[in-house]
Design a protein around this nucleic acid. Structure first.
Length: 481
RNA sequence: GGCCCCAUGGUCAAGCGGUUAAGACACCACCCUUUCACGGUGGGAACAGGGGUUCGAAUCCCCUUGGGGUCACCA
């Protein structure tokens, strides 16, 4: 039996790091097993669907390198892969369930149900559907219908049943059907099936062998299992992946601002997909070898649920940043160039220096070691990008010092006398200044940094001087004197 | 509250009855370096508590505590 797994997001927003990891684990398992990874769009909540969210998911997933073999946007023989295109399929199955007596119309209104729920909570009881509409007579049904009430369809749960399943991550799981909350809705009064129903039918029809999803779905599993049983279907194997936690230790809420949550935001900050892929894979899974920097195929080769952790994990942005820095350093300047250009679109737009690729390539090579993610570059490299220099506090303090004056004026003179300009010439010039002034080491280099770059820290000085160019150096020396 | 899940350093985590309890990130120190960074070396830092089982428990069982998920005509 070949493995078939699916990621089935509901198109309500942007791809979230938690969703991305779930998708990734599905993908990794499929690829490791030589199976098929499917993308299905779970859009049965008409009100929450967001326009173009599904396309955005697809785009983000592709950016991450989590490609699906079958499903939305690529097709396949088990389609359609968008739930709202499958309504007629659900209808057939609903009829079947009705005929077999597994489902019945419920005319309770939302307000009635809400009242019941609250009363139960007040009494300290577990909220649970009373089963009020379970035994409506045909007459009562007709009366409601002529009244214009639109029924929801409920699945009949027999309370004495014990449900169990083996979870690939958690092992044996057992539930009392009676404790799941009573008869549950499988078709909403607007005629659209609920998640639990659509998901079950789709997974079966699409021949899904392993359902890999977030831990928040554990409590849905018994209900879905009941549906499998009603149809007489063999259920798939389940794997419930632990949650990604926010700084507060709770499931990451979309409003949590302690952490950047959407894949798109990381991309925009200049995080690299290979870093995100690597990092996300390590969130809840560990390879047996002691190595954390892993290329895509290494992860695929090593992945397995026997090494997936049960407990929730905090998303450690600092580690991601470190890992991204590693991958930045691994890329060539040439590979980084288009990303950097794109990055600068939002910053030094007006800088004429951005038009020269050779110049930018040198800038990148100067700063590559210092970067964790590309959005740090515009700020970091601002001495090279803007025409006006604003020396920072330390630089200003040094410039106020008398002993720097001699160095600066000597340097200005020497630079003016050069006939060509590159890193070697800069180096020779500095030597000459050293000889002429007697200042060496920090006494020589720091004043220059302060005057020409406005900062005491930065990339290699000779390279910096070369990149800056003679004219700008002279202009800046003039400015500070 | 009911049901369910989880529990090793600040974080991610290895460990699956006998280890000086790995490694990575972060932090600190030192080295490299004219600075910063990169890189290298070293350091501090953990088995939630209590009972069992066992010659021997981080590892197995129970209880307690703590944290989390879920209790929708949302997924």
């Amino acid at each position: 039996m070949t493995v078939r797994v699916r990621y089935a997001p509901s198109p309500t927003g942007h791809l979230h790091i938690g969703g991305a990891r779930t998708a990734l684990f599905n993908y990794l398992f499929a690829k490791n097993q030589g199976g098929t990874f499917i993308l299905r769009i779970e859009d049965t909540d008409l009100e929450r669907n967001v326009d173009h969210a599904a396309e955005a998911f697809a785009e983000q997933l592709r950016w991450l390198g989590v490609e699906w073999d079958e499903g939305a946007y690529v097709g396949g023989e088990y389609g359609p892969y968008i739930c709202t295109d499958r309504l007629s399929i659900y209808d057939e199955h609903i009829r079947l369930l009705r005929e077999r007596g597994y489902a019945y119309d419920c005319f309770c209104t939302e307000t009635e149900l809400a009242e019941h729920r609250e009363m139960a909570i007040v009494r300290g009881e577990t909220p649970r559907y009373s089963g009020r509409c379970r035994h409506l007579t045909e007459q009562q049904r007709k009366a409601f219908l002529t009244e214009g009430r639109k029924p929801a369809l409920r699945f009949r749960v027999s309370d004495d049943e014990v449900i169990h399943f083996a979870d690939m991550i958690r092992g044996e799981m057992t539930f009392d059907a009676g404790a799941t909350g009573g008869d549950f809705v499988i078709v909403k009064s607007n005629g659209i099936p609920t998640y639990n129903f659509a998901c079950t039918v789709d997974d079966y029809l699409m021949k899904i062998t392993h359902v890999i999803r977030g831990e928040e779905h554990i409590s849905n599993t018994p209900r879905q299992l009941l549906i499998y049983k009603a149809f007489g279907w063999e259920p798939p194997t389940f794997a419930h992946v632990s949650l990604i936690l926010g700084a507060n230790g709770k499931k990451l809420s979309k409003r949590d601002e302690s952490i950047i949550q959407f894949i798109e935001q990381y991309r925009d900050l200049g995080y690299l997909p290979e870093a995100m892929f690597n990092f996300l894979a390590l969130l809840g899974w560990t390879p047996s070898e002691k190595q954390e920097i892993l290329a895509r195929d290494e992860v695929i080769r090593a992945f397995g649920f026997d090494r997936v952790n049960k407990s929730g994990a905090f998303f450690d942005a600092a580690k991601l940043a470190w890992m991204n820095g590693h991958y930045v350093r691994e890329r060539s300047e040439q590979e980084l160039l288009p990303l950097v250009k794109h990055m600068f679109l939002n910053y030094h737009k007006e800088s004429k220096w951005l038009e020269s690729d050779p110049w930018l390539l040198k800038l990148i090579s100067l700063y590559k070691d210092k970067l964790n993610y590309l959005a740090q570059l515009p700020e970091m490299a601002s001495p090279f990008l803007s025409d006006v220099l604003f020396p920072d506090e330390d630089a200003n303090a040094l410039l106020a010092d008398d002993s720097t004056r001699a160095v600066l004026s000597e340097f200005a003179e020497q630079v003016a006398n050069t006939t060509s300009w590159d890193a070697d010439v800069a180096k020779a010039t500095l030597k000459a200044v050293q000889a002429a002034t007697g200042h060496k080491g920090k006494e020589l280099y720091m004043p220059l940094r302060a005057a020409v770059l406005g900062q005491l820290h930065g990339p290699d000085l000779n390279q910096s001087l070369a990149l800056l160019g003679r004219e700008r150096i002279l202009a800046r020396l003039l400015y500070v004197q």
